[in-house]
Each structure stands twice: as structure tokens, then as C-alpha cells.
Design a protein around this nucleic acid. Structure first.
Length: 311
DNA sequence: TTCCAGGGGTAGA
DNA sequence: TCTACCCATGGA
């Protein structure tokens, strides 16, 4: 396969490692984390239909952090392809997000947030909304191992293969799933009751790939996006909060078993609690609640790990 | 075997 | 708005 290097720059502060590790997305196909080189790779199907493998790594830097993207591809990589790959990396790593207000609040709010080094707090996302929405639905009411299995089966069954390495596949396009009958889709991937939700979502995106373009418009109020998300079958409060986070809006907390466990262990002395009281813990974080909660969770787990106790 | 997981839909109050 | 019940699937 041909190989092309693409160079990008992230403006400081930017912490590549914590962006990859902040939540589990780097472990869901077609992403793959490579601990030995602290890099990740991804099989991506470009708009032209061409399937490529991209390996992304970062170097050290003070004001500018150089990012290297090694692209393996068949044939020639057009300038349009290159520019699309740059956009994919930029979007996945959220290079255009400004978290300076969040960092300022972290300094004001004391421990543990005062430990939050600028450059952290970015959470990896997928290049496209369809993939992120499907993956969020695959996290509902299932353990993480189940999420990984469901996503893996989706990629293996319906993803477009990389030339010469057909075992490596891109995330399926919505149109590919929408072209199947529901019975066939359901029989090829064990998604449980989520199959109907994901199939319906694929039909909506398959019909019009930018069906939720307004979600990316900064002028659209978060409340409006949340309302539209909740109208989608399979997406409730937890999934809507998670998708909002992936859209770069941190106003909502995803209430799930992880959140409830943290509340019981850290704030409510191992006892049951009122949800409103629990959510009030992060009330003064305004539009940064999700990040405040998530960093609280990560540092709590880290502290338990350092002490040798499990949570 | 039973329980439940990075929940959500629906019906009925 | 709140609650009870059901929903596939697989790991613990």
C-alpha cells in the first residue's frame, strides 16, 4: 500500500494522551489504541469511497504540538482526500474547542479540579455523528465488554474493508445498513433490543447524511438539540447527555450506574440518595457540568487505584 | 441460577 | 411528572 504523511498542529494547551484515554472511545473499532507508541489508528472510509488506515501520533511541544498522521492507502491520495483526513483528525481530537473557561473554573473550584492541567479534558469522538450515536446506544444497559462486542460485530459485518487487509474495516455507513432488511440486519449482529433503534437511525441518516446538521451550529440552543435527541427512539436522558458531550456541549450529566456509584461512594456515604441532590453537586459549573463530573470521576478512580483499593 | 450492566419505551396513575 | 414493568444479551 502507498503511504502518505500528513502533518497537523494543535495549539497549546493540548494533551494528546489524555484525549485518547479520557473515555473508552479509543478502544471501540474501527479505532485502535497502540500503547507502545502512544498512538491510535483508525480505518476510515472517505467521502470518495476510498478506505484508508490512518495512524495518529503526537510530538512534544510548548506552544504548538505537532501531530503526525500516517495514511496507508491504495492508489493516489487526492488533495480532497488529504483535506478530509485533516478534518477527521481535527474533529476527533476537538482541536478547535476552546476550554479556557473550564480551566479557569477548575482553578477556582479547589480539589480535585485544581489538579486539572490545561490541555486535558478533551474526550475523543468519532468523525461522524451517526457513528457516535450508534456507539452511545451500544453503551446503554450493558457492560463495557458488551459495548465493544456489539461495535466490533457492526464493523465486521457491515464495514467496508481496507484493500489488501480485508480483516480491517471502517465503521459501516448508514446507507449500507439501511439497504438491508431489518430481519437480515438483526440476524447478523447481536444487538438485542437495540437493533431496531440502530436500524431506524441508519435509515434516517441513510436518507439524508446531514439530517442533524443543526446540531453542529453553535447558534442552536442546547435545549433544542436535547429535545430533538430525546425524540429519537433509543435515546433517553443518559444517551442525550452523552451525545451532547460528543457535540462539545457539556451542560448535561449522563445519569447512569457509573454516575450513581460515584455519588454513593464520594458524596452520600454509601447510601441511597435523591437524584436532584446528586445533580446539585455540579450545579455551579454551568455549561461545563459534564467535564466537571467526568474529571471528578477520573480522579476518584485514580486515587482509589493509587491506594490499592478498587471502586 | 440469578442479577444487572456507561438505560429506554410504554402504559397507567 | 412519576412509577412499574418489560425489553435482548452476555458477563459475573
Amino acid at each position: 500500500m502507498a503511504e502518505t504523511e500528513i502533518h497537523l498542529q494543535a495549539a497549546a494547551p493540548f494533551d494528546f494522551w489524555s484525549t485518547l484515554q479520557a473515555h473508552g472511545w479509543v478502544d471501540l473499532l474501527p479505532n485502535e489504541y497502540h500503547p507502545e507508541s502512544n498512538s491510535f489508528s483508525r480505518i476510515e472510509q472517505l467521502a470518495s469511497g476510498k478506505v484508508v488506515r490512518m495512524g495518529v501520533s503526537a510530538e512534544q511541544g510548548d506552544e504548538i504540538i505537532p501531530l503526525n498522521v500516517l495514511v496507508n492507502h491504495g492508489g493516489r491520495l487526492s488533495s480532497k482526500d488529504r483535506s478530509e483526513i485533516e478534518d477527521v483528525v481535527r474533529h476527533m481530537l476537538r482541536l478547535d474547542e476552546d476550554l479556557s473557561e473550564f480551566y479557569r473554573l477548575c482553578r477556582q473550584n479547589g480539589f480535585p479540579w485544581s489538579q486539572m492541567k490545561p490541555g486535558k479534558g478533551r474526550l475523543l469522538r468519532s468523525p461522524g455523528l451517526f457513528e457516535d450515536m450508534v456507539k452511545v446506544i451500544c453503551t446503554t444497559n450493558v457492560q463495557w465488554g458488551g459495548t465493544r462486542r456489539m461495535v466490533r460485530e457492526l464493523v465486521e459485518q457491515f464495514g467496508e474493508p481496507l484493500p489488501l487487509y480485508p480483516e480491517l474495516k471502517a465503521f459501516p455507513r448508514a446507507q449500507t445498513i439501511a439497504a438491508l432488511t431489518f430481519d437480515e440486519f438483526q440476524s447478523r449482529v447481536r444487538l438485542g433490543y437495540r437493533a431496531a433503534y440502530i436500524y431506524q437511525l441508519a435509515r434516517v441518516f441513510g436518507e439524508k447524511s446531514n439530517c442533524y446538521a443543526q446540531f453542529f451550529n453553535q447558534q442552536t440552543p442546547t435545549e433544542e438539540i436535547k429535545k430533538e435527541l430525546l425524540a429519537i427512539k433509543g435515546i433517553g436522558n443518559y444517551a442525550a447527555a452523552s451525545i451532547l458531550m460528543l457535540l462539545g456541549r457539556y451542560d448535561e450529566i449522563p445519569v447512569d450506574s457509573v454516575f450513581q456509584q460515584l455519588m454513593r461512594q464520594k458524596y452520600f456515604h454509601q447510601e441511597d440518595f435523591d437524584l436532584k441532590e446528586a445533580l446539585a453537586v455540579y450545579e455551579n459549573w454551568g455549561r461545563w457540568k459534564y467535564l466537571a463530573y467526568w474529571f471528578d470521576l477520573l480522579t476518584f478512580h485514580q486515587a482509589a487505584e493509587d491506594e490499592g483499593t478498587s471502586v
